[in-house]
Amino acid sequence: MARTKLYTGIYVALFVIATMQVGIEQIGLLEESYVLALALITAFSVIKAVIVAGYFQHLVWEPRSLTYVMMLGFVGFLALTVAASYSIQ
């Protein structure tokens, strides 16, 4: 039962963070300080993804090796995207 409360709390938190992302755009932070706004919005997305993976997908209770498997794919994505984008700077 405690898990159900935890899941509910996480669900509410995810809702709030998603709203905050749009809030950043609505208050005009993107126009005022684009880089800061971009960093905040990206950070919020990462936080949400980590929470969903950790608790809804139960990664925090699974062997750590499963997390590493997913990280392998994510690092591959980062390597491709960052290096490719840098290559045309």
Binding site: V69, M70, L72, G73, G76, F77, L78, L80, T81
Partner: peptide, 9 residues
């Protein structure tokens, strides 16, 4: 799912 991460990535 790890391969799907790369696909979407």
């Amino acid at each position: 799912l790890a391969s799907d991460v790369v696909l979407f990535g």
